[in-house]
Amino acid sequence: MHGPAMSGWLLVALSTATGAYCLARLRSNSESARASAGGEALMAFGMAVMALPAALVTIPARGWTVLAVVFGCGALRALWSARTAGHHLHHLVGTLAMVYMTVPMASGGMQAGHMEHAAGGVPLVTGVLLAYYAGYVLRTGATLIPVPPPVAAGPTGGAANAATPGWGARPELTLACRLSMGIAMFAMLLTL
């Protein structure tokens, strides 16, 4: 799933850091923070494996088959969860996109098990996924633009001290992780 080795390593680092934060969110006191953290950690670590430079490791076809099955199970879980939470639709698209990228590698159609200069997908499907992730990245990035909070006067005339959520429940960190995974997915789809 690579071009130059440097971009592969950057995707590995970004995806691994994102996956680690998602695992840390699993220990949060907030139910909403834990709700999607496991699926996001799976996606992030899966992207890290897929982005490993081919010079470092050559994953056999059966390894890609295992990844396709794992992401397929993740898609089924996201489909089941999408009944109650809208964000799981994004997880469904993401896990299906991961299956879409791993199937050509599992069938042995790629050089050395990685996508390096070989067409591995259907151009229309790849284009739709690229458009989806481009829109997702732009929309998510726009929500991270800081907006100053309204200042409410407390009983002493100063600003009211609202309770700050724990680091695992900070919505801006969760959005930043989702943004980085969206960027990584877009980059990986470009190489397909």
Score class of each variant (00 low, 15 high):
43 M>N: 08
59 I>L: 15
66 V>S: 05
91 H>W: 03
86 G>D: 12
50 M>R: 02
110 M>A: 15
20 A>G: 09
33 A>E: 03
39 G>W: 02
60 P>S: 01
5 A>R: 04
13 A>F: 09
13 A>M: 05
104 P>S: 02
27 R>A: 15
38 G>S: 12
18 T>P: 02
11 L>D: 00
10 L>V: 10
80 W>Y: 11
58 T>I: 10
48 A>H: 06
70 V>A: 14
69 V>S: 03
68 A>M: 06
94 G>S: 13
86 G>M: 12
50 M>G: 10
92 L>Q: 10
78 A>G: 05
65 T>W: 13
70 V>S: 06
52 L>P: 08
25 R>A: 14
33 A>F: 06
49 V>D: 02
72 G>C: 02
106 A>D: 03
103 V>S: 01
44 A>H: 11
16 T>R: 00
47 M>T: 09
72 G>D: 02
4 P>K: 00
24 A>L: 15
93 V>W: 08
109 G>C: 07
57 V>C: 06
19 G>P: 05
36 S>M: 14
102 T>G: 03
60 P>G: 03
114 H>P: 09
21 Y>F: 15
30 S>I: 05
115 M>I: 15
79 L>N: 08
117 H>W: 12
118 A>M: 14
74 G>N: 01
70 V>H: 03
84 T>I: 09
17 A>K: 01
37 A>S: 15
88 H>F: 15
42 L>C: 07
76 L>F: 13
45 F>Q: 06
71 F>Q: 03
62 R>Y: 14
22 C>H: 14
108 G>Q: 08
70 V>K: 07
9 W>L: 09
12 V>K: 00
65 T>Q: 13
23 L>N: 05
7 S>L: 07
61 A>K: 12
89 L>F: 10
108 G>S: 06
109 G>V: 06
5 A>C: 00
75 A>V: 09
14 L>C: 11
79 L>R: 08
107 S>P: 01
33 A>P: 04
81 S>E: 14
117 H>R: 14
66 V>I: 15
114 H>S: 14
104 P>E: 01
95 T>G: 00
80 W>V: 12
94 G>W: 00
91 H>R: 05
107 S>M: 13
117 H>Y: 11
106 A>K: 01
62 R>M: 12
46 G>D: 04
95 T>E: 10
63 G>C: 04
